[in-house]
């Protein structure tokens, strides 16, 4: 008998698939609930879960649902690896394993009274969405709220209906840009960093929450600094290989940081020296 019988942080709990929907050509959203359907899994915006496909493998995926509705776990991911490709084929009623939530969160509760700038690149919108929900459910507690979202092409726009709905609100500024587009597109073309210089926020009070590819985040920080944001007002969500989620497997090390435990959300102040180095 070598199998661990005690409560082990590496043993997943079963969750049932409530729905699975295709978002774009290569992304999908899966909604999960506990087996009895009523247990809650509270989480903070920015945290992630380890999702386990029995017999296939386990991967970290950010939580992209509403933190005020903790009965439903929402995960949006891109189907690119062995696990996500298998996950893509899940149907309502199927069961997968979940461990979590893990990691640090966006500082939504700390920045009340400030302007909030969300900058998302591609699938980076998914881990920011819970923070958007949290801000919008307490809208009166924040200053201006701006969402800047860049993606590859119009077909890759994530949560399109929701973005359109948000953009229709008078208390929210939503700007979308794409890297490339065909003639029918009438929106912005170019990288998301181009949107920063003209977006309406007060750099003296604003807090920026940034998630996207590392290169996009580096350039976003530069633009935010040009607008006058100080390093301590910029937050990033980092991505690294993760096997355990609890700081024991060593995979997610980013200099002295364990991204799974000390991140994924970091103040830029804390990681700026590391981001300046290559292949750390």
């Amino acid at each position: 008998m070598n199998t661990l019988t005690v409560e082990h942080p590496m043993i997943p709990k079963p969750y049932r698939v409530q729905s699975l929907r295709q978002e774009t050509l290569d992304t999908f959203t899966v909604e999960l609930s506990s087996i009895n359907g009523t247990s809650e899994l509270p989480f903070n915006p920015g945290q992630f879960n380890m999702l386990y496909m029995v017999g296939i493998g386990e991967i970290p995926i950010s939580i992209s649902g509403n933190p005020d509705e903790p009965r439903t776990l929402v995960h949006t991911t891109r189907s690119v690896g062995t696990v996500t490709k298998a996950m893509r084929k899940l149907r309502r009623g199927d069961v997968i394993g979940v461990r979590g939530p893990f990691g640090t969160n966006w500082p939504v509760d700390l920045v009340q009274g400030s302007d909030v700038v969300f900058v998302a690149g591609g699938i980076g919108l998914a881990p920011l969405r819970p923070a958007m929900y949290r801000v919008l459910s307490h809208r009166e507690k924040f200053g201006k709220v701006v969402l800047l979202y860049g993606t590859r092409s119009p077909a890759d726009i994530l949560y399109r209906k929701e973005l359109e709905h948000w953009r229709a609100r008078f208390d929210l500024e939503v700007y979308v840009t794409v890297d490339r587009a065909l003639r029918p597109w009438r929106g912005n073309v170019g990288v998301v960093t181009n949107l920063i210089s003209k977006s309406p926020f007060d750099p003296m009070s604003a807090v920026a929450m940034v998630c996207g590819p590392e290169v996009m985040m580096r350039f976003t920080v530069l633009e935010l600094q040009k607008r006058g944001l100080v390093n301590s007002s910029i937050y990033l969500s980092m991505e690294r290989n993760m096997k355990c989620g609890i700081g024991l497997c060593g995979h997610c090390q980013f200099g002295p940081e364990f991204v799974c435990r000390d991140g994924p959300v970091f103040s830029y102040d804390r990681v700026k020296d590391l981001l300046a180095k290559w292949e750390i």
Binding site: M1, T3, L4, M10, I35, V54, G55, V95
Partner: peptide
């Protein structure tokens, strides 16, 4: 090499087992 757990796929998901290693 350490076995973390064993599981059996069932008609309704999976069950973590502690069968003889």
């Amino acid at each position: 090499v350490l076995t973390l757990f064993k599981a059996v796929k069932t008609s309704d998901g999976f069950r973590i087992t502690n069968e003889t290693s």
